[in-house]
Amino acid sequence: MIYLDFIIGHLNYWLFIVLMMTGLYIVVARGNLVKKIVGLNIFQTAVFMLYISIGKVTGGTAPIYPVDNQGHMQVDPSIIYSNPLPHVLILTAIVVGIATTSLALALIIRIREVYDTIEEEDILEIERKLSAADNKTHGPAMGGRA
């Protein structure tokens, strides 16, 4: 039964990986700029889940000591607390994530105003034309966007 234990103990991780990879797939495979950002968020949130699950201790509870009426902490050694450090790291990471998202959305708004589209394929098409025009006036060059 050692295999079953192993599977139960690791099932969570594999599910997180499925979520992560769905998010990553949206980022790399979908051409809509907003949707890419949604994918990025899903990807990152799944990574956060992985972190938080590191901190989980079976039978544990949230790492906040109970406080009595006088404001004194009740420290009961029999209570198991989950590991608070991953929570702290992920709080930081969530904040970084929303910062990135807002910046990306602002960029998308600017891109729409200039290109009048938020589809990667259309933008690439426009840029190909721009570089073709460049090449015509300034001589041929190798490797467009890449």
Binding site: L24, L107, I108
Partner: peptide, 16 residues
């Protein structure tokens, strides 16, 4: 204006 899409690409790659 290609600076905008360059920045966006960089943002996606950088964040990944």
């Amino acid at each position: 204006t290609r600076a905008l899409t360059a920045a966006y690409d960089y943002l996606i790659m950088g964040t990944i």
